[in-house]
């Protein structure tokens, strides 16, 4: 098991290294360098820069360095926690992201939990009551759940429940953390959680149904029945445990959707999460800020996959042995 974890951690570092390269390319991709943006800002404040000033700045920003030198400079700073400056806010990126990311992680975590708690029972019910009316209802809901864009669902729910979005009531927003603030959070959290997890819940329900139908055809389920076990025990103990296996693997597939959903939903729902800042940074080509977020989203994803792997090893003895 320890071996397994070490190997996975090693693979994770490699993945992150490649992600950092992709991220860096994305920073460099937009036309115009970071410096141009800076110069434009200075010019907007009044006054032109002369050539020597410009050259001094180019020197400082390393505009003419070869690309690998630029990457090295960026990544060595990033590892030390310096992700560059946000032009938009004119402050270090690190100061901007932590609080926002915290809420994003909380939202993604609650959404996964919600998706699981809803999709497993629904999927099991749907699979064991095939071709009944509730199964059809679940199936149709699940088609719609996958089809509805997060922002649309957010708008519809906000209109229906006369909500204004946000994670806190207005008077709680700036208040220090307290039990009352926590309760207030819970009162607001359900709506974003539903919005963010709707697609994934629908998807997982479908996966669960299909998996369980697969497992129910397995011989060992018949063996369990032949023992005289109650049908409920046959299903929940012998079948579901095996059907979870592919479901856990799909966490890897659902996480990107959850993070993406968070980004989109947070705009409509006015959430203090990473989403709105990220989108805004992209719109304004504030690339250091945007890409730092992207890196952290990826980090979340990689960690999520690691957790999924560990869960899988816990559920399935065959994987533990490897």
């Amino acid at each position: 098991m320890v071996n397994f974890i070490i190997r996975r951690l090693f693979a994770m570092v490699i993945t992150l290294f490649f992600i950092s390269i992709i991220s860096f390319i994305l920073i460099e991709l937009p036309p115009g360098s970071a410096l141009d943006a800076e110069i434009a800002r200075l010019q907007a404040l009044g006054g032109n820069l002369n050539l020597s000033q410009r050259e001094a700045l180019e020197e400082r920003y390393g505009v003419n360095d070869p690309i690998h030198a630029k990457y090295w400079k960026w990544i060595s700073n990033a590892v030390q926690g310096d992700f560059g400056n946000s032009f938009q806010y004119n402050m270090p990126v690190t100061q901007l992201i932590w609080g926002r990311l915290g809420f994003s992680i909380m939202l993604a975590g609650s959404s996964i939990l919600f998706a699981w708690l809803v999709s497993i029972p629904l999927g099991v019910y749907s699979a064991t009551h095939r071709y009944t009316i509730p199964d059809y209802v679940i199936t149709v809901l699940q088609f719609i759940g996958v089809a509805i864009p997060e922002f649309l669902l957010a708008l519809v729910l906000m209109v229906t429940f006369e909500s204004v979005g946000g994670l806190f009531s207005r008077d709680m927003e700036t208040a220090p953390w307290s039990f009352a603030k926590f309760v207030d959070l819970l009162e607001h959290l359900w709506l974003p959680v539903i919005v963010v997890s709707a697609g994934s819940t629908a998807w997982l329900t479908r996966v669960m149904r299909a998996n369980l139908l697969d497992v129910l055809n397995q011989q060992y389920v018949q063996t369990a029945r032949a023992k005289g076990l109650k049908e409920s025990k046959v299903i929940w103990k012998h079948a579901v445990r095996n059907a979870l296996h592919p479901l856990i693997m799909t966490i890897g597939g659902v996480l990107p959707a959850l993070i993406g959903g968070d980004v989109v939903a947070s705009i409509v729902l006015n959430l203090p999460t990473a989403g709105p800042v990220f989108i805004n940074a992209l719109r304004n080509q504030d690339m250091y800020l945007a890409i730092t977020f992207l890196m952290f989203f990826s980090l979340l994803l990689v960690i999520g996959n690691l957790i999924a792997d560990l869960l899988l090893a816990w559920v399935d003895p065959r994987i533990r042995l490897e």
């Binding site: 992709i22 890897g252 597939g253 993406g260 990689v302």
Partner: peptide
């Protein structure tokens, strides 16, 4: 494939599209 799968889709799409002139 794993690497591409390790970056959340919508943010990556958005970042790529934002990079279009």
């Amino acid at each position: 494939i794993e690497l591409i799968g390790s970056i959340p889709t919508i943010p990556l799409w958005a970042a790529l599209a934002a990079a279009l002139p």
